[in-house]
Nucleic acid binder design. Structure first.
Lengths: 111, 111
DNA sequence: TCCATATTTCCATTTTTATGGAAATATGGA
DNA sequence: TCCATATTTCCATAAAAATGGAAATATGGA
């Protein structure tokens, strides 16, 4: 993952409404939720919701699927994983921490 | 970790300059780097650098230590780990993915 | 004390982001 | 076709974030 992509992804999550949307979709599972449902659940106005969903989609954090006149948004778990990997890579470069990146950054052992 | 704290932390990282600073400090190790060194390495003006360092510090992502007239900034690996945990928690709530959170969100197996 | 240097604060400016009303577009059902 | 509803786009406004010059503050050395 490139730095600019990481910034875009982080920026997409760095906002109350969008973080709520994403987390809602994460718990909703792969089938996702229709836009209206998300709006109901979070109390967000249609235009605002559409704006934020587009941001999340642009960042690749969510995907869409049309079903009748409903559009279902769902979390992109793979994109999330890429971000996590990016944040932990180069962690404690070399010594003295050599805990696998997947376990988190140095597991807090560095300081 | 609370949602608002997560947003603050994500926002701190969601900016080219700050992400560069943080990653530089991550690779620099626990001893950190003096402000001037960071500025040199990244080509950032003093006022701008100070602004971003304060943002990172406010978000708890970096710590400081004074040594003579130099101030050393260093990465807070524990804070980083908390953010990672927050982002992966509730991942694929219940079924059908039951991979440990530390391994990343569903390991991309959900979709 | 005086000086050199490290870092921060103050301030104005520019840029980006968030919000929601109203209108437009899309889809399926009657 | 016409209607009801789902979602997005357009637009203006408001709020927040980023930038860097210049001045202020802090620290150690001469």
């Amino acid at each position: 993952m490139e730095s600019k992509v990481a910034v875009t992804t982080l920026a997409a999550l760095a906002q109350e409404t969008r973080l709520s949307i994403f987390r809602l979709l994460v718990t909703a599972g792969p089938e996702g939720l229709a836009v209206g449902r998300i709006g109901e659940a979070l109390g967000v106005a249609p235009a605002t919701l559409s704006f934020h969903l587009k941001e999340l989609a642009h960042a690749g954090l969510v995907g869409t699927r049309q079903e009748g006149r409903f559009i279902y948004y769902s979390a992109n778990y793979a994109a999330m994983n890429e971000l996590l990997s990016f944040l932990t890579e180069n962690c404690c470069n070399g010594a003295p921490c050599s805990i696998p990146a997947a376990a988190g950054c140095c597991d807090g052992a560095c300081n």
